[in-house]
């Protein structure tokens, strides 16, 4: 019986890896055969899926609801502009710097933020983001509210930014899967389910959450850099806008909080929906209202999102972060009928 089960799992894995490889191949070759519009759409999807993955890493796995992701977007974008305009660094190096600066800020804040829970964490992250934009618009060499051009980004082709976006999409997803399958991930699940019990069993709560914040801030900083390379001009109030976090919340809630495929599906839906809404004239800010209403309705009616609901129904996961228990199944207690 046990053997049959493990065989099924590995066969499923094979098909899964082939599927994932095929998708990656299609993504990488898209600029060669796809139209301009398709390239742009997939570029946006890459950015928003990665944004969702990073918010989900905090909210879905570490119980940290961050409402300040826009802080890292803005910091990452401005770092790219400053390093390339003033220091003459190449753009990819600027992106890494953007991630590092974001991560440094997150590490600095973490000593304060990680003592807080629930609403304290949520509002404090929001407050830091609001404070950050006040600081950024008062600094002369950052454009003083007028924003900055990333001069070097003017020479970029659409396909260049596209590959940055796909890279960040793949890296963010792989990093989350690897992190969650590691010992840290196991500890995070334990903390999420019962933090006192986890702490007593020796899970380093502070350090585990700190790693998540570091990863999330680094990659979100890079996302900000990539997005504003495609825009060329950074408008500070847009870069530090709460709508980045709104997008992340929407993507993760719709797709399924605490799943890997959730943000992917949510991100695709978000980009299609927001592009469709932006084509309607006269709608203006109502598009955000529609996103908000959908998100609230999903939390009320299908709290696990699309992926969570489907998983519950059919009991299968496309990308699982659970440790594969195959070789330990003999040690597991017999499943009991619920």
């Amino acid at each position: 019986m046990t053997k049959l089960k493990t065989n099924n799992v590995s066969k499923g894995n094979m098909a899964r890896y082939i599927g994932i490889a095929a998708i990656v191949a299609i993504l990488l070759s898209l600029p060669a055969w796809g139209g301009k519009y398709a390239v742009m759409m997939v570029m946006l999807m890459g950015i928003y899926i990665a944004l969702g993955q990073m918010w989900n890493l905090l909210a879905g796995y570490s119980g940290l609801i961050s409402l300040g992701q826009q802080m890292y977007i803005g910091v990452g974008a401005f770092t790219v502009a400053v390093t390339s305009n003033y220091l003459g660094l190449p753009l990819p190096l600027g992106l890494v710097c953007g991630g590092l600066v974001s991560m440094a800020i997150a590490i600095g804040l973490s000593y304060l933020l990680l003592r807080m829970k629930g609403m304290y964490f949520a509002i404090a992250t929001w407050m830091f983001a609001e404070a950050m934009v006040l600081v950024f618009v008062s600094i002369q060499f950052l454009g003083k509210g007028q924003g900055l051009f990333i001069t070097a980004a003017r020479k970029l082709q659409a396909a260049d930014v596209y590959y940055y976006s796909i890279a960040i999409l793949i890296i963010s997803t792989v990093v989350v899967v690897v992190l969650l399958r590691s010992k840290i991930g196991l500890g995070l699940f334990a903390i999420r389910d019962n933090d006192t019990a986890a702490e007593t069993s020796g899970v380093p709560q502070f350090r585990s959450k700190l790693y998540c914040m570091m990863v999330s801030s680094f990659i979100t900083g890079v996302i900000g850099g990539v997005y504003y390379m495609s825009q060329v001009w950074i408008q500070p109030y847009a870069a530090f806008s709460i709508s980045w976090t709104v997008a992340a919340v929407f993507i993760v809630v719709i797709g399924g909080i605490g799943t890997i495929t959730g943000p992917i599906i949510g991100g695709v839906i978000y980009v299609f929906l927001s592009q469709y809404l932006s084509t309607l004239s006269q709608i203006g800010s109502l598009s955000q209202v529609i996103l908000g209403v959908i998100a609230v309705a999903v939390i009320l009616l299908a709290p696990k999102g699309i992926v969570g609901t489907v998983q519950n129904r059919f009991g299968f996961e496309i990308i699982s972060v659970r440790r594969w228990m195959g070789k330990y199944t003999d040690r597991l207690p017999e499943p009991t009928e619920a």
Binding site: I65, G118, I242, Q288, L291, G292
Partner: peptide, 10 residues
Amino acid sequence: LLITFGISII
């Protein structure tokens, strides 16, 4: 928390 955040945006 997320519902009130949604209401705030709406």
